Simulated assay, not measured.
Amino acid sequence: MRIFARPHQFPPRLAAAAIILSSGLDKTGADDEAAVGLHGMAAGTYPFLGRVDPADFTRLLSRAEIALGTALLLPFVPSLLAGAALTGFAGGLLGLYLKTPGMRREGSLRPSEQGLAISKDIWLLGIGLGLVLEELGHR
């Protein structure tokens, strides 16, 4: 088995993997009320998701988070691939932050109390972009 991650990439990959994998595992047991809430927030920002059943959406989101978290944990998954997937995922989360009413203080990028938890996902974007840029620089 070939290792595609350099030793200094393990800490940020592990940090991101831990939170994403935990989130995905938590969603595996989501009840209907939780699924409707998750789906409603996502569909409010990304209207095309409105066509997806809330339970199906939550199940797919859970599986995607588990897959991404696992990919970040496994050193034989290339950092470019893991970083690109993480960047896309984090971009979607930040889209929720930027487009959902009440997440930011009026006229500002600074988070409101409700938006603080999602605004913190900027670190996921930083890790993903860092992995991607480093790998592109080594080619």
Score class of each variant (00 low, 15 high):
54 P>F: 02
33 E>L: 10
23 S>Y: 09
41 M>L: 15
96 L>D: 02
36 V>P: 01
80 L>H: 10
90 A>W: 00
1 M>W: 11
79 S>M: 00
101 P>Q: 07
94 L>V: 10
21 L>H: 10
136 L>D: 01
98 L>T: 09
99 K>E: 14
38 L>I: 12
68 L>H: 06
84 A>Q: 09
88 G>D: 09
97 Y>L: 08
1 M>E: 13
18 A>P: 00
96 L>F: 11
118 I>G: 00
40 G>R: 03
46 Y>D: 13
20 I>G: 00
120 K>W: 05
107 G>T: 03
29 G>L: 09
33 E>C: 07
35 A>T: 00
13 R>H: 07
133 L>V: 09
56 D>L: 15
88 G>H: 03
137 G>Y: 05
62 S>W: 02
104 R>A: 01
39 H>M: 05
95 G>V: 08
90 A>F: 05
116 L>S: 11
101 P>C: 01
123 W>I: 15
83 G>S: 05
94 L>N: 08
57 F>W: 04
93 L>P: 02
33 E>F: 06
139 R>T: 14
90 A>G: 02
68 L>S: 03
134 E>Q: 15
92 G>W: 03
64 A>N: 11
31 D>P: 01
25 L>I: 13
103 M>L: 02
82 A>P: 02
48 F>Q: 15
80 L>C: 06
97 Y>K: 01
119 S>G: 13
4 F>A: 13
120 K>M: 10
70 T>A: 15
15 A>G: 09
36 V>S: 10
6 R>D: 13
17 A>E: 07
128 G>T: 03
43 A>K: 03
2 R>E: 12
128 G>C: 04
22 S>D: 15
13 R>D: 05
19 I>W: 07
12 P>C: 01
79 S>D: 10
37 G>I: 12
47 P>V: 04
136 L>G: 00
63 R>Y: 13
129 L>T: 11
13 R>P: 04
88 G>I: 03
36 V>G: 04
35 A>K: 02
9 Q>V: 04
32 D>H: 10
28 T>Y: 03
15 A>L: 14
74 L>D: 13
22 S>F: 12
132 V>K: 03
93 L>M: 10
14 L>Y: 11
43 A>N: 05
64 A>E: 14
83 G>D: 05
41 M>F: 09
